[in-house]
């Protein structure tokens, strides 16, 4: 299930230390809209294995600033509460599954 993170929800999930994939996006951004269905799909595909979520940078500016997100879409992967990898821009689903699979 896809999680729409608030700052509080994000920090709680981060503290749990599980593998997380978070898409930083905004609704004014065309490429973000394009990536949307891929993220939705991965959320279903990795149900129970990884947490897949989205952060709206317009609503959660603090998170965007904390992680230095300066271009959207940016997808950041976390494990044990730390960033392990990030992908900037639109990419095929395989680019994301590769990171997820090697960190399961």
């Amino acid at each position: 299930m896809l999680v729409h993170f608030s700052k509080e929800g994000f920090d709680k999930a981060l503290n749990d230390g599980k593998l997380m994939m978070v898409d930083f996006w905004a609704d004014w951004c065309g490429p973000c809209k394009m990536l949307g269905p891929v993220i939705d799909d991965l959320a279903n595909q990795y149900e129970g294995k990884a947490i897949v979520g989205k952060v709206n940078v317009d609503e959660e500016q603090e998170l965007a600033i904390r992680y230095g997100v300066m271009s959207i879409p940016t997808v950041i992967f976390f494990k044990d509460g730390k960033e392990i990898e990030r992908k900037v821009g639109v990419m095929p689903g395989g680019a994301f599954t590769q990171v997820l699979d090697s960190n399961l």
């Binding site: 905004a26 004014w28 951004c29 490429p31 317009d58 300066m70 271009s71 959207i72 940016t74």
Partner: peptide, 17 residues
Amino acid sequence: YLGRGVSYCATCDGMLY
């Protein structure tokens, strides 16, 4: 520096600046 200050899309990233 793509995504760390370099951008190709003013419409997408302008608000972040």
